[in-house]
Design a protein around this nucleic acid. Sequence first.
DNA 1: TATGAATGAGGGTTCATTCAT
DNA 2: CATGAATGAACCCTCATTCAT
Lengths: 199, 199, 199, 199
Amino acid sequence: MGKAVENKLKKYSSILSSSFELFSTKGFSKTSVEDIVKKADVAKGTFYLYFKDKFDLREKLIINSAQKLFDVAIEQSGYKNKESFTDKLCAITDVILNEMARQPLLTKFLRGNISWAVFHKSLEHGRGQGKYDYIGILKEEMGKEEAKYHDPEIMIFMIIELISSTSYSVIVENDPVSPDVYKPHLHDCIAAIANSFKE
Amino acid sequence: MGKAVENKLKKYSSILSSSFELFSTKGFSKTSVEDIVKKADVAKGTFYLYFKDKFDLREKLIINSAQKLFDVAIEQSGYKNKESFTDKLCAITDVILNEMARQPLLTKFLRGNISWAVFHKSLEHGRGQGKYDYIGILKEEMGKEEAKYHDPEIMIFMIIELISSTSYSVIVENDPVSPDVYKPHLHDCIAAIANSFKE
Amino acid sequence: MGKAVENKLKKYSSILSSSFELFSTKGFSKTSVEDIVKKADVAKGTFYLYFKDKFDLREKLIINSAQKLFDVAIEQSGYKNKESFTDKLCAITDVILNEMARQPLLTKFLRGNISWAVFHKSLEHGRGQGKYDYIGILKEEMGKEEAKYHDPEIMIFMIIELISSTSYSVIVENDPVSPDVYKPHLHDCIAAIANSFKE
Amino acid sequence: MGKAVENKLKKYSSILSSSFELFSTKGFSKTSVEDIVKKADVAKGTFYLYFKDKFDLREKLIINSAQKLFDVAIEQSGYKNKESFTDKLCAITDVILNEMARQPLLTKFLRGNISWAVFHKSLEHGRGQGKYDYIGILKEEMGKEEAKYHDPEIMIFMIIELISSTSYSVIVENDPVSPDVYKPHLHDCIAAIANSFKE
DNA sequence: TATGAATGAGGGTTCATTCAT
DNA sequence: CATGAATGAACCCTCATTCAT
């Protein structure tokens, strides 16, 4: 890789990581481009070389973050070795919750900036840099079960919403309980929800 | 009531309803005080006669909205006539979901501006104008059941979060399904969750 | 005096004393009419019943304060019993300096709001409530001396300016020395200035 | 010098000179940033590129003005060729008074915005751009005299206050006399004050 | 006479974005 | 590619003043 290209990438990443931190801590609208470029140590004009505007940056950041989170979940959960679909789901959830607890900023950022719509989009295959077809994988695993599930789409929607909305409060605010106390409850509920979708 | 007092109340309400609509449609930070007073047809200074600043207004709006929503739910659900706690819960949920579907702006507003922390606060008894002790009522009803529930606090937290986060997507974006399609799923899930908390 | 008239006077005085304190501590332009009426415990409209505007109030306050200060100086200095004009001048100066030291707020107020022009005006006889013809008295005392003074007007101007400008720094800021250390120097200088005007 | 740097300096100076004129004529608090940038023909944002706020601008202006005034006095008075300290003092005073008479706005600005504290600070050596150690020079000249002075600090304080406070009235308001008539009186008084500090 | 709710122009300040270098 | 000075619209908020009661 040429030195110029390398340098270019460095600036791009610098803006990405700086803005991520700032959006997470101060919130999107309270973070100014000034703040971002100062932290990233690039000139103001450089910002607009890589991003159309602040909103463009945010969207790229969301997709980036969500995909990285799911990549880790897919790779580290060892879901393939689990018997039932419910167990697989719980294994994946576990990694996600752990990752979020490990990166409270990520949690804050996702909750504060995401809607199901964008989230959903970022999980779709073929969009940008996602390594896996996350939803496809889940559906495939469901199919392997003896018992069939109806409306898998809705089920995934509900589970993801439950995870993401409660995680925020639990991880960032420790309210109403701590993540460790919360985790088994989440497990149980996910299993309960999954079961309620069995035919 | 004196004419002055009456007029005063009218202005206050006008700001409240105008800002509610704007926050719901444009979002909090994209709504300027200028926008609000123009819509409310009052002078800019009048705004600051009734509210310390935009944040103060938002908080008052949240508490107000959440309480009105729950008041309706308590009053119209007829939960007292239901047998089981799960049924009561579903009855209440039904009204809430209906109300939210009837008032998409309310849904948008609550989702975009609320966190569990504020929400929780606004449900507490004794704070401001809330007619009922919502959480107290739920706990009381739980107590009447033969089967006992552990960690009712966490259970309520999870159910409320599930309702509020999924409702937003379903009502406002019709994604992944319409509210009518979604409702029975939500029922089932709430029952499932409640059951998983039975001792 | 009727009760109504009495009450009226009370409100007027209340505004006067409240604004004096506020102007002295916060400065004229940083004091709002709101501040004044709140401190004076009258309604906002009442303010405009007695004063044309904030500037009108200030002028009335200046004249009032300066005259009271000079009244005390005339009455308590015992200047009539002193031999020479210089001694009389010092006696009067003494009282003024003491008064200013006793009322730092007065000092602050006068310095921050006065110019020689207004000051001069407020010392002229016949304007409002001044008991004495201050400048007339000084000229008369000068005339009693054997040695004659030229340009008494200029002399008085210089002495008053010296007193008022240095007093502020010394009393309010204790800079460059304290009032007690400063007083003898002022005495000497006033005597020196007076002598330099002797024919 | 690059074109950019040159332009930058031009904007900065433009703000400085425009605000100086406005502060002098309308007073500090009645001058808005809007007024300043309009007169300086720069955008409002540009103002905040160079100054933290209006107060920052004022302080820079005061220090700048006072120092320029004293620089001229030091350089044009030819004080080194005078015999006695009193003569040197009068020579310097002369230049200052002439300068002030030549620049009534400067006089107005200094009187309306300065206190001994700030003034003193701006005369201290080492602060910013002052060419000379003004107070040091005066003290040094005092030391060359045969007759010694006590409390030189207080003496300088009194003389400067006398000059600045009376000059304002004389130059700006022509009250009680014109500058030309006033000058010899000021000379005499300064000499008299200086003498009264001789041991 | 006394009130205080209502006004709206104007205050200081921020900031996303542009463009000449 | 990279820069950062310059922009000016838009922001939130204050306040002297009015006027219906």
